[in-house]
Design a protein around this nucleic acid. Sequence first.
DNA 1: GCATCCCATGTACCT
DNA 2: ACAGGTACATGGGATGCG
Length: 781
Amino acid sequence: MHVMQGLILHYLRGLSPYFLKNTFTQRCLSVTTLVVFILLNSKSGRMKAVGWLLDVYVSWKNAVLWFKLESEEVIRLIDHYTPDFYVEPKEKVQPEELSSILLNHPNILHVTLDNKYTSVNMKVKSTVLHVYIDYTKNFRRVLRDIEKLGLIKAYYNIDILHVQRYLFKRGVAPTSKVQIEYDEGNRLQCMCIIDDELEIKPPPLTKLVFDVEIYSKNLTPEVEKDPISKILVYNENLALERAFEGEERSVLSNFSDYIKMEDPDFLISLKVEAVLRYILERAKIRGLTIQLGREEANTDRLERLAPHSHKGRVHVDLNTFLGIGIAGIVERSRFTLAPPRLSAKWPAGRTIDSRQCYEALKKDILLSKTRSFFKHVTTAKDTIFRDRGGLILSPKAGLHENVAELDYESMYPHIIIRHNISYETVTPYFINKTRRGFLGELTEKILDRRLHFKHLRRKHPKGSREWFWCEQRQLALKRILVCIYGYSGCFANRFNNVSAYEKINKIARETLVQTMNVAMREGFEVIYADSDSIFVKKEDADREDYMKLAKSIKEEIGLPISLEHHYKFLCLLTQKVNPELEATRRYFGKLMSGELYYRGIELRRHDCPSFLKNFQKRLLEILFDAECVENLKKDQFKKAQDYVVEIYEEIMNGKIDPEKLVISKVLRKPVDEYQSMFPHVVAAIQMMQKGKKLKPGEIIDFLYVNAAHKNPFRRVVPAAILNNSHCYYDKEKYSEMVLDVAETVLSLFGFNGEQNCFRPKSKNYLEELHCEREDRKFDLN
DNA sequence: GCATCCCATGTACCT
DNA sequence: ACAGGTACATGGGATGCG
């Protein structure tokens, strides 16, 4: 009850005349704007502007839209919004009758009869009632009330956000460039999209990257007790630009003033939502009213802070920003048609669902709430036989020279498009090719866009702004594309069709087999293949020959494939636990360009201490600093072994900075759910004893101090409570790890850390590894 | 009582 | 609320040995 009242007050305040006047005068301060206003105003009483839709939220019966204008001004406009949904009456119930019953509800404005598809199959339209509600806050209540009637078979369009409903209807994606018209009451009269789809440069949105330091005795600060000691502001390159420090009150109010002055569109920090809330809570405790958004925020119930409480600005996590940048966030917003504050953080499923809903509604398909049940009955045996993922050809373990890696470009999206795979076109028995599939249509738009930026990127010098923007855009789209395939068969997908998913996999496997056969026919040896890539070699083949192979595969199979890497040396590994077997998805090598390239080994793992990573990298550099295989196997291998001895001794002498030996692991579940005392779990428990609040997903940094100790609590120490003066790392444990890391790189050449630390096993070992495998024909049975 | 093997558990990586 | 496949470290019980 309290919460509800708080929210309503909050919304009312947001719309009060006082507020509107306030922003209006503020905006008019600039002389240029005044001139523009007068000029535009003189004719129609309406004002026009061009800008970008920055943020949208919905409250009460309005949509509030924030625009960044070309003039760098920011304006807030209001548009009407009427929440609505659809219902399908039960068979015996007359639609007209249900309609008049519904109209009795005090919060239902009106009801119309309509014909819509209720499934993505689009077979036949059903008669449905279109129900309009007065205010957003009554939406759930109306649903609850009419549920009790027992007259309704199904509800549609009820589990999307109001802001999605508004934007889908408008058909405008946030961040779009638009021409707007609005009246003196700041009511939006007209909004037309200006096509800037092919722009590389993102809209001119400004950002503020910051970090908050909190003074706390505990590992997790408590907002009631622990003051903010510093707020640091960083520039584009993450260099410190400004520091607010000293007494907390002044830190907070200076920071708030700074935001007001700089007026950034984006607020960016680590754990941005938690940090912004912490700032507001501390301000409240200090009796300050500060404002981080462009509108006043309601700070009555901070623990229930609404997701869009910093209205008019977009808050984004630092990692998202570093990953895909503003350009990537713009891509996500335009794909999902959701405001960037949401689209930037939504996980894959939500992202794809949003766009699918938009596309479905455009086709007159209503959005069912319930996940569709099994569409086709199959036996368990069928499922096991059919539902296999990508195909992997065991690597031929050993050292290879002059190897080409050919990768299909976006294989899964291409398969979806070429084979018309979609929720409504695929059954276990056939694919309907008489009409264009829903999924293919969507995938093609996004794939074309991604490839456009991927290829455009190459036309700009590496490191230029344009290059980065293209990269950020194509990366953001790539991440979405990969998930379209995975999400197609996911149970949580409202349109899901497992057959479609399985079909994609089947075609992918067949494609890979055909690809290998082409390569072999052309006289290449296939030494490894995985899902959408093959590794081939042929004596004396050069770059041209490999590109020619890619071309003939492309022509024969019809999907784009290209030379992704050309290796001077490539090591394919055997399994550590079972050296007779080859290890997939674990290899390392050196490219013709001189660059190292590796997958799956310790160097790629985030839980490997930095010291060991550096060590392994150096080992690779030493090993591959060779002209030919002989040179590598003899001289460089020897040098690498010497380096292992050197590092081994350095560890044993206790000379290494413990900081560099810290291991990071993610805590995947609450500590009490673990069945064993794993090191990171023990470290987590120790941290909790020191007052750290830990949730699943958090990173645990720890150091081995006595790995073999009987008491699990004596084995590790969390990095956060490392006391340099009496903390020693476990030399035995870390020296073991040094040997393990060395073995990954050197065991192919006979190195075995355990048995004979630094001498090769046998002379014949390498020759054995190099024995040629007879060529095989691959076939799907 | 110990060393060793084996397996479930858990995390991370690859495509 | 993305899937499926894979590798490896770890803990701890089972097993074997003396």
